[in-house]
Amino acid sequence: MGNIDIRSVLTLALIASSFRMATPIIFATMGGIFSSHTGIFNVAMEGFLLIGAFFAVYGSVQTGSPLGGMLFAIVSCLLASLIFAILHLELKANPIIVGLGMNIFAIGMTNYLLTALLDSTGVYKSNLIIGFTQIQIPVIETVPVLGDLVSGHFPLVYIAFLTVYVVYLILYKTPFGFHLRSVGEKIDAAESIGVNPKKMKYYGLLVSGLLCAFGGTFLSLSYLNLFGEGMVAGRGWLALAAINFGGMRPVPSMIGCLIFGFMDALAVRLQQFGLPSQVVLMLPYATTIIVLLVSAIIARKKRMAGIGKQDDVDVSVATSSKKVEV
């Protein structure tokens, strides 16, 4: 247990599996960025991922196709986020409390449906679940290092990284993105130009539901084809930490996701070396706390460096004040 060769741990396969582990977190993070930019800190993503994962499995069993499963996941997550949106936006409930209520509701619902629809408790595993298959990218596949890292992933892994770029384009390059972000940053400005903040908040929540459906589908229909009630394991919360880390910007937040993904992958890898699983499985969660701390330290350092340059306003600090304080 004591002698583990670092080189045998830090392999290309480890990096490649970090991408895989980061994928569901990236989806949730990008969805969360959307709602955060409309001023809603979406704490229900944990529940959305769970709902997505369950219905992906159920849909796959019903339709015999992973795409069918994904469709089920999308519809159910959109419905869940619609309920969230109605409770918060129409019935004026506190979004944090509603979000936490949604999580509890999601646990209850999947728990119940697992028994009622799939006749299992805790875990459902079956040959009837048809998952996605890996994609081997021609040519790149044969390039030594690159091939190991980039080729042979499940389609949703590529889609996750594509999503980061698309979210960036939508939020920062389109009129819609400008309007949406103005709602979260300065709602008066949005209203003054005729943007309907409520509508944007609906969009924000529905997009976070949609992307959590992708994340949930990946959890249950790629790599492991099963549904387990504890399988989301805090990834919705890790996504919130990643958003915080990246200051709501898509690419920096993605880097946060990759750090968490790496820790997940490392935890799995270290278990194979006989370290007690209970200890290594703490890694991703402990890392999250450390990442939050480190980003707070960096932010403060930046501010300190700005002191004295009196007329030089530090935009990054000022804009980061948008972060939701709870």
Partner: peptide, 17 residues
């Protein structure tokens, strides 16, 4: 598990003021 659903619904409805 249906009880868990009832609990979830309950807390969601309490949030509505």
């Amino acid at each position: 598990a249906v009880v868990a659903m009832v609990k979830g619904t309950l807390v969601l409805s309490v949030t509505v003021k």
